[in-house]
Amino acid sequence: MKKIFFLVLFCSLLISCNEKTKPIVSFYYWKTIFKLSNTEKEILRENNIRKIYIRYFDIDLHPKDTNPIPLTPIHFKEKMNDFDVVPVVYIKNKVMLKQNLDIEDLAQKTVKLINEINTKNKIDSKEIQIDCDWTLSSRDNYLQFIALFKKLSQKKISATIRLHQIKYFKKTKIPNVDSGVLMYYNMGTIAVDSLNSIYDKKIAERYLKSLKKYPLHLDFALPIYSWAVHIRNQKVIGLRSKLSISELKKDENFEKVNSVFFKVKKPNYKNGVYYEENDLLKTEAISSEDLIEMAENLNKNCVQKPNEIIFYDLDEFNIENYEKNIFKQVVSCF
Score class of each variant (00 low, 15 high):
Ser332Gly: 07
Asn18Gln: 12
Asn67Ser: 14
Ser153Asp: 02
Lys235His: 10
Asn121Glu: 03
Asp84Glu: 13
Asp58Arg: 06
Asn307Ala: 06
Leu314Pro: 00
Leu314Glu: 03
Lys235Gln: 11
Ile52Tyr: 09
Gln108Ile: 11
Thr189Lys: 12
Glu284Tyr: 05
Pro70Glu: 08
Thr39Gln: 06
Phe10Met: 10
Lys173Val: 01
Tyr274Met: 09
Glu42Pro: 02
Phe5Ala: 13
Asn196His: 05
Asp58Lys: 05
Glu293Lys: 04
Val25Ile: 14
Tyr90Met: 00
Leu106Trp: 11
Asn318Asp: 03
Ile91His: 02
Lys3Phe: 10
Glu252Ala: 13
Asp290Gly: 00
Ile117Thr: 01
Thr110Ala: 03
Lys126Phe: 12
Ile198Tyr: 09
Leu195Met: 09
Arg162Ser: 14
Glu127Gln: 14
Thr283His: 13
Asp251Val: 01
Lys265His: 10
Phe34Cys: 07
Asn18Lys: 09
Arg45Thr: 07
Ile123Pro: 04
Tyr142Met: 08
Glu78Asn: 06
Gly272Cys: 07
Pro70Tyr: 07
Leu182Tyr: 11
Leu281Ala: 00
Ile128Phe: 09
Val303Ile: 14
Gly272Met: 13
Lys328Gln: 09
Glu276Asp: 15
Ile161Gly: 01
Ile224Asp: 02
Asn233Asp: 12
Asp279Ile: 06
Asn141Thr: 07
Ala295Lys: 01
Lys249Phe: 06
Ile43Asn: 10
Lys212Tyr: 07
Ser287Cys: 13
Tyr142Glu: 10
Ile146Phe: 08
Thr110Ile: 06
Leu71Asn: 05
Ile292Ser: 08
Arg50Ser: 15
Val229His: 09
Phe6Pro: 06
Phe76Val: 04
